[in-house]
């Protein structure tokens, strides 16, 4: 049961959101230039940290906006919420 603060709508119940996996994974500018291995890394390989994780969520049942979240996967504390296109902030305490 998470309470997640949508950058626009404010704190809302987890049931309104959908999880989008690890954040800040940019689509390669020229996919055709990548080796199969490098392309597989882009497609499939994800971090699974114990601790702070940058991930993206969408306010699926709300304003339908995607945004970024820094979340501690151990304590489930949410350290930061920021809009798409904004740089990842320093992880808080």
């Amino acid at each position: 049961m998470h309470l997640i603060a949508c950058p626009w709508c404010g704190p809302r119940d987890e049931v309104e959101y959908a999880y989008g996996g690890e954040g800040h994974i940019a689509r390669p500018a020229r996919p055709e230039a990548l080796s199969d291995g490098a392309y597989a890394d882009y497609l499939f390989m994800r971090r699974n940290p114990k601790g702070v994780h940058a991930e993206r969520w969408v306010h699926a049942a709300g304003c339908r906006r995607w945004f970024n979240v820094l979340r501690d996967t151990v304590s489930h504390r949410i350290l930061a919420v920021y809009k798409m296109g904004e740089p990842r902030p320093e992880a808080g305490p």
């Binding site: 959908a18 995607w66 798409m84």
Partner: peptide
């Protein structure tokens, strides 16, 4: 619909 929104909003 979600797929299109995700590409346009995130990429």
């Amino acid at each position: 619909m979600g797929w299109l929104e995700e590409w346009v909003q995130c990429e």
